[in-house]
Each structure stands twice: as C-alpha cells, then as structure tokens.
Amino acid sequence: MKADWVAASVRARSMAQRRAGAGASRAMATQPTLDSAVALLRESSYGQRLAGARGLAAAERAVQETVLWQLRVLAGWLPASGTALARTAAGIYEIENIAALAHHLAGGGPTPEFYALGALATAWPRLRTAGSAEELAAILRASAWGDVGTAGPGPMRDALTVAWVRRLAASAAAARPWCGAACVLAAARIVLVDGAAPAAQVLHLLRPVLGSSWETASDIEGFTAALPHSLQGVVLGVASPKDLWRAEARAYAAAENDGFRLLRGSMPGPDVVLGAIAVLAMDAWRVRAALAAAASGAGSSEVLDAAA
C-alpha cells in the first residue's frame, strides 16, 4: 500500500480509539435523567457539542454532528485517492439535508438547520437552492444521486438511502454486507410495517440487490423466504414485523464488528479508514440509543441489549 495512506490510517485508528464504547453506552442508559447521561460524555469526543444541547433531540443532533466533524477531519488526512470514500460515507448526512429540504418544500414548516458538509458534499450546494419539490428532483437526477423519483419525501428518503448504500458498496468491497442488510431492512419496513407498495424508483434500486420476489410478501416468513439466500440471515429469527428493530440492532452490531476487524487486520489503506468510519458511526448509534433510554427513565436499553 502506498505510503500516502499511512498517516490517514494512523489518524483513523486514533479517532476510533476515542469512541465512547459499548460499556459507556450501557452506563449512560442506566442513568435516571438525560442530563446525568450527557454528563458521562463530558470528556469524550462528543463533549464539546453536547455542552450546549438541551433536550433529547438536540443531544442526538450533537452526537451526529460530532461524527460528521470527525469525517471531515479524517478526510483532511486522506490522499486524493481516498476523497471519494469519505464523500460517499458522508452521504448519509446529505440525505438528512435533502429529506429535511423536501419536507420543507412540501409545506412541512420552516427551513431546517442543515448539516455542514463542507468539501464532503456530493451535490448539496446545488440541491439547497431548489425552490420546489420538482426542482429538487430535477437537480437530483442530474447529480451523482440520480433519479430518486417524485413520490414524496418518504419514498425519496428510501430511494436516497438505497442509492447511498449501493454507492458505498461500490466504492468499498468490505461494505457490501452492510448494503445488503440495509436493503433488506428498508424493504421489510416498507412492505411489512408501512404496508405500502414500494415506489417505482425504490424498486428499481432494490431489485439488483434483493430481486423481486419479496415485493408481494404479506408476512415475515414469506418475505424472508423470498430473499436471496445470502441475505435471509438479516431477518432470521424475527417473528413479526414489530420485531424488525432487533434485526436492525443486529445489523448495526455486525457492521461495528466488521469495522473492528478492518481496523485490526488491514494494512494502511482504505480498509482501515472504512473500519474507523464504521466504528465511529456505530458508536454514535449506541450513544443515541443510550441517551434515549436515559431520557425516558427506562433504566436500560433493549436496543443496546439486542446489539450486545
């Protein structure tokens, strides 16, 4: 591997080591209040942005902004050949911006606060200028996101999410299992939880990964059986659609384990960086689950237990 990846790999491993960790997340989940849980993160990488957060939504936003900032810092250490990986990984934040703008353009309230993507934006500088849902869809079609349909903010988010995980898998082979799991969970939610027919563009994006047999499934057993054999394990053991959150928690845990494996076993290069990105993203997911548990006074988190 070229020497220009060495510094980036060292930085990536260092950033991953500063994660809160599963143990800290479990400790936060047992706290009696959100403030006491946030206090446990005071010295962590999340501490600076959490300092001014008031309420659960603001705390969760601060956690997400921390990871985005870590991505932007990491991108500054990458050689030119790694820029596409960082930009693709940051696509999840661009999706949040696009979805928020689409909701606003559909009459859903004032202009939201967008994530600051900086150089990691795929097409956001142009997208944010859209003055209507039709203009937003047109700009998307002409961008790297491609045609995500015009069926409304919900289907647009689904299409963007599937397009994003497919882009990530195309840019990094190690991310392919994450793509498959994300596609399975998106399809399951649409047909089994929402009870909706997937929008045409969502189907177009899902079919290369999942085939088409699942589209007419009416229960979890039929859905699972209709999936490609290699992906059936994503929802294995899920007894009903209301338990799909358990499959989602398992998928997050599996991605985190893959991230640790990439960090430990890879020579300096893109896989180390991808591993760090996965570990940081999954740590933020655990922290948000823990904060939600503390805010509710539950005393524990079923989500974290399912991911253990």
Rank of each mutant, 00 (worst) to 15 (best):
P198A: 05
S212K: 15
G21Q: 07
A308M: 14
G265S: 04
G55P: 06
S230A: 15
F223E: 09
D243G: 13
R286K: 14
V303G: 01
L140E: 01
L74D: 12
T33A: 14
V38D: 00
G180D: 12
A200E: 03
R87S: 09
S81Q: 14
G237F: 11
L168G: 00
A307R: 00
A7F: 08
D243E: 15
A99I: 00
R189Y: 01
L203I: 14
F114A: 12
I220R: 12
V193S: 13
G299L: 03
I190F: 06
V165S: 09
A137W: 00
R250C: 10
A196F: 15
A53F: 01
G47F: 04
V10Q: 10
W245H: 11
A174H: 07
V162R: 04
G47M: 01
A144R: 12
A57V: 13
G211V: 10
T33F: 14
L50V: 04
A100S: 11
T66V: 05
D243Q: 15
L203Y: 06
A159L: 04
V235G: 05
P270L: 12
A57P: 06
W5T: 10
A253T: 00
P79Y: 06
K242H: 13
F223R: 08
S25D: 07
A100R: 10
Y115H: 05
V193Y: 13
L263E: 11
R157T: 06
L168D: 00
P208M: 08
I98F: 07
A100V: 02
A84I: 11
E256M: 13
R61G: 08
A163H: 05
A307K: 02
R167H: 10
A253K: 06
A249R: 02
L168F: 01
R128K: 05
